[in-house]
Simulated scan of single mutants.
Amino acid sequence: MISQRARYAFKAVVALARAKPGEGLQIRQLCEQEKLPRKFLEQILLSLKAAGYISSRRGRDGGYELLRPADKIFIGPMLRSVDGPIAPLPCLSRTAYRRCDDCRDEASCELRLAFARAYDDYLRKLETLSLADVMKQSDSTPHGSTAALEPLPGAV
């Protein structure tokens, strides 16, 4: 399950991707449009800025903008930039590997084996699924429809 922080980051990045090119969104606009708490959003935007996903301009005409096109923003790395490792177990993490404290043997660990394949499929999808892919499906799905639950292009 993703954190509330990751959910808010995702909503903010989608809103920025939908903004007119060259016109940044002010934090007030993001908060109102996406119903996000300002203090929390400020921290999230700083993380996204530090990771190179967004830029900010001060002043009356300032605001936040994406630094990359939506088809170059992949969901896994973006979530990791605000939330840290996304692996269900530390021994499966590709960015913050750590052997589990109670593990006798990783090769035969039932817990690791139970999650490894599913996590590999999940991670492979998150690493290749772009923000543009998600937005495209959202735009083509009628509101209130369960069609949004259909697999995204290339889903495993």
Rank of each mutant, 00 (worst) to 15 (best):
G76M: 11
V134G: 03
I2R: 07
D71M: 00
R7T: 04
R5C: 02
G59K: 06
M135T: 05
A96H: 14
D83E: 14
D61I: 11
A70Q: 03
A118S: 15
K39V: 01
D61R: 15
G62Q: 11
K72W: 00
R94C: 12
K49L: 11
R104A: 15
P85H: 10
I75E: 01
E23V: 10
V134P: 08
L79K: 05
S47D: 15
L66Q: 01
A17H: 00
S130V: 03
L41W: 01
P88G: 09
L67W: 06
L152S: 07
R124G: 08
D101V: 14
I27Q: 06
V14L: 08
Q137T: 11
L92P: 14
A116H: 11
A6R: 01
K35H: 02
Q26C: 07
Y64D: 05
S108F: 10
L126W: 09
R104F: 13
F115H: 15
S81D: 10
R99A: 13
L111D: 14
R80S: 14
C109Q: 12
L149S: 10
Q4T: 00
L92I: 13
K125G: 09
A148Q: 09
A19R: 05
Y8G: 02
I73Y: 01
S55N: 15
D139V: 03
Q33A: 05
L48Q: 07
T128R: 12
A15W: 04
S47K: 14
F74E: 04
D121N: 12
